[in-house]
């Protein structure tokens, strides 16, 4: 969510002993980023309302009984914040270990980096630790849902819901460890409200939600990001002017996304922009050419 930071008021605060200032309305995370403090986040995304559920961004705020989430705690004058105390490190490490011990995070690149940074050892909860392992859901031609990889960051629910698409095809169902992302009565996507905008996939940080095209290439072992180019261009359909990032591998489009920081899309697209590129590579064009 963009917060209007322009009230003119600036607060003085201290981060890891260094004095700094921040505009009223900024979050601790905003300040951390502004001063270059690497703060891990999983459920946070600039374009979505902070749900502060993953708790990996917690910091120590002087005078507070518990740690506070940097992503959603708004700064106040005189705050003294520690982002690298043993208490903070322990919490972050545990959160990463909790997740990695329950969820397949093999495709969550940023999380892997943070796990290394905090020395997370998810295996210490034992081989019998409960996980969310389950079969992959393939029920339509465009999406694959592999909830074994879901860390329940709520981003897809927010993108499908009131933060962007307002389609509400998915929500969190169940409770506690059984909480999961689901359609109504767990019906397949074709029976649900899904309009295949792909915005849930666009915000998924762990690869739990994936385009069929990518999933199939990964299964076949041909997906190779090192060989891919990413080119920003404008969608060829309606006149809204959405920026598309075209991911191409060996001169073939393999995926389309949109930059989260783009003013027109905020990273969101519709089914046409997201999937309507197949014609570019169809044989008919080749042979006639």
């Amino acid at each position: 969510m963009s917060i209007s930071l322009d009230t003119g008021v600036r607060f003085s605060l201290e981060i890891d002993g260094v004095a700094t200032t921040a505009p009223a309305g900024a979050t601790i995370l905003d300040v951390c980023r502004a001063v270059g403090v690497d703060t891990p986040t999983l459920c946070y995304l600039e374009t979505l309302t902070p749900v502060n559920v993953c708790r990996v961004c917690v910091v120590e705020l002087e005078g507070a009984r518990t740690l506070v989430p940097a992503c959603s705690r708004v700064v106040e004058d005189g705050m003294k914040i520690r982002t690298d105390s043993e208490r903070v490190r322990a919490s972050r490490r545990m959160v990463l270990e909790f997740l990695a011990s329950s969820v397949d995070v093999s495709l969550a690149d940023d999380m892997q980096r943070q796990m290394k940074r905090y020395g997370a050892k998810p295996e210490r909860f034992g081989a019998e630790a409960r996980t969310v392992r389950q079969p992959v859901k393939v029920d339509n031609e465009l999406y694959v849902r592999d909830y074994s990889k879901c860390i329940l960051c709520y981003k897809c629910v927010e993108a499908c819901g009131s933060d962007a698409q307002n389609t509400f095809a998915i929500a969190t169902a169940g409770r506690g460890f059984d909480a999961h992302i689901s359609t109504e009565f767990n019906v397949g996507l074709p029976d649900s409200a899904c309009v295949y905008c792909g915005n849930c996939i666009g915000v998924c940080p762990t690869g739990a939600l994936m385009f069929v095209s990518e999933h199939e290439m990964r299964e076949a072992g041909t997906w190779d990001e090192a060989r891919q180019t990413k080119t920003d261009t404008i969608c060829g359909y309606c006149g809204v002017g959405c920026t598309l990032t075209v991911h191409a591998q060996d001169n073939e489009i393999v995926k389309v996304s949109s930059p989260a920081d783009h003013d027109v899309t905020h990273g969101h697209l519709c089914i046409k922009g997201r999937f309507g590129w197949k014609f570019v590579g169809v044989k008919k064009r080749r042979s006639d050419g």
Partner: peptide, 11 residues
């Protein structure tokens, strides 16, 4: 089940 420390920690 909302936040990680409690959802997984209690398990």
């Amino acid at each position: 089940g909302q936040c990680v420390p409690c959802r997984i920690g209690t398990v």
